[in-house]
Design a protein around this nucleic acid. Sequence first.
DNA 1: TAGATTGTTAATCGATTAACAATC
DNA 2: TAGATTGTTAATCGATTAACAATC
Lengths: 214, 214
Amino acid sequence: MEKEISQAVIRRMPRYYRYLGELLDDGVERISSNELSTRMRVTASQIRQDLNNFGGFGQQGYGYNVKYLYDEIGKILGMNQRHNIIIVGAGNLGQALANYVKFEKWGFVIIGLFDVNSALKGISVRGIEVRMMDELEEFLKKNQVDIAALTLPKEKADEVANWLVNLGIRAIWNFAHLDLELPEHVVVENVHLSDSLMQLSYNIVRTEKSKDKK
Amino acid sequence: MEKEISQAVIRRMPRYYRYLGELLDDGVERISSNELSTRMRVTASQIRQDLNNFGGFGQQGYGYNVKYLYDEIGKILGMNQRHNIIIVGAGNLGQALANYVKFEKWGFVIIGLFDVNSALKGISVRGIEVRMMDELEEFLKKNQVDIAALTLPKEKADEVANWLVNLGIRAIWNFAHLDLELPEHVVVENVHLSDSLMQLSYNIVRTEKSKDKK
DNA sequence: TAGATTGTTAATCGATTAACAATC
DNA sequence: TAGATTGTTAATCGATTAACAATC
């Protein structure tokens, strides 16, 4: 039986991937868990434990080959395959995501942009034309869509998400400020910007308080 | 000595706040940890433990008063005070954030928008004019800025962040795809969209694999 | 008073760190 | 071969869950 890998580990993988990418760009050929731990400010033990969840990528006495490890983590994260994305909700955030070219470097390609607002009909963002929601069903039949990014008001999000799932969508990148209620087989990744801002605010308040104490 | 509250707890606080806000909107007056645990799909024990890090907000035999608890968590998160924000980097993401009116509901007010790109000079987003970076120092002298949101390419982010800190900024909401190297007293909250997308991708790949197994 | 539900202590579980034998 | 560093087991630490006495 497959051992389930904890979300704590998975959250760290993109960060390893990022650091290895930078090392690669800098022309570094090999690195030890110890050297990497110093750069990333984590323990070497954690790095080795994390990686060994997926396999033994290193070599005793040598360390890790940067290029090899980068590619392997890439595979683990699915960076070796293309992911077609549609953005549902073509407001500011939706358009900002559509404009974000960097994602394509990792194989995430935005192939559609949808909205209910007919004022947006016909406008294009980086060559991607905004379509109306009633064209979505047809679009999903003709195109393989791997991920739907939800950038719409929370009032509509749950309904739209369920509708998308019924049409066959299996993965949702949710920017709406609510917890979606979806069948278990659907993969959901949340980006709650206001939660993030509140955490920041908490830490500001906390810092101010500890200053008062001194 | 003040006991340090773990980041795991802090990450959950905005979610409690959100659920309580919804209950409040629905006119619910009181709620037990048990009832709330069912809605939020966490254990009642965790809810009580989390809250008791900050104080005893409930009453035996009664539960929690929704309005009171909502306000108290609001205070913990600093939602009772105004936070002035500047956005540094007026590209798509920066403009999207500037357009996001919802933040003001929680007291986060965007008071400035800065960029190096002179092509953007003079344009306005929701009444906030884009200023050039060389006006920033003067702006910080004249206005109280609590948070700087960094929405610029990672190549510039570290330099700009350090410069901002030297000018007195104490909190940074970082959207650039790198880890900022800043003095310890500076509070940083990261939003790494590509990390989030990679986590989603990992979970898609994982789901596909477990399907193959069956 | 009896019932309900908190606040809090104790038990369990999981994640992180340390240690070291295996091995390149 | 000697030195370095991994992979992995064992120890520790912290976070979550369970249990229950306190109390409204």
